[in-house]
Computed example of a mutant assay.
Amino acid sequence: MTDQLPGDRLDLVLADSTEISPEIAATYERGFGFGPIALAADLRDLGATPARSDR
Rank of each mutant, 00 (worst) to 15 (best):
G7S: 08
G7A: 08
G7M: 04
G7W: 01
D8A: 05
D8K: 00
D8F: 00
D8Y: 04
D8H: 05
D8V: 03
R9Q: 10
R9E: 09
L10R: 04
L10H: 06
L10V: 12
L12H: 02
L12D: 03
L12P: 04
L12T: 03
V13I: 12
V13P: 04
V13M: 11
L14F: 08
L14I: 08
L14Y: 06
A15E: 15
D16S: 03
D16G: 05
S17Q: 15
S17E: 14
S17K: 15
S17N: 14
T18E: 13
T18W: 02
E19Q: 15
E19V: 12
E19H: 11
E19D: 11
I20T: 10
I20D: 08
S21M: 09
P22L: 05
I24Y: 04
I24M: 04
I24F: 00
I24W: 00
A25V: 14
A26I: 09
A26V: 14
A26L: 13
A26C: 10
T27Q: 07
T27V: 12
E29Q: 10
E29A: 11
E29D: 13
G31L: 03
G31A: 07
G31P: 06
F32W: 10
F32L: 12
G33N: 08
F34M: 10
F34N: 13
G35F: 04
G35W: 02
I37Y: 03
I37R: 01
I37M: 01
A38P: 00
A38G: 11
A38E: 15
L39F: 01
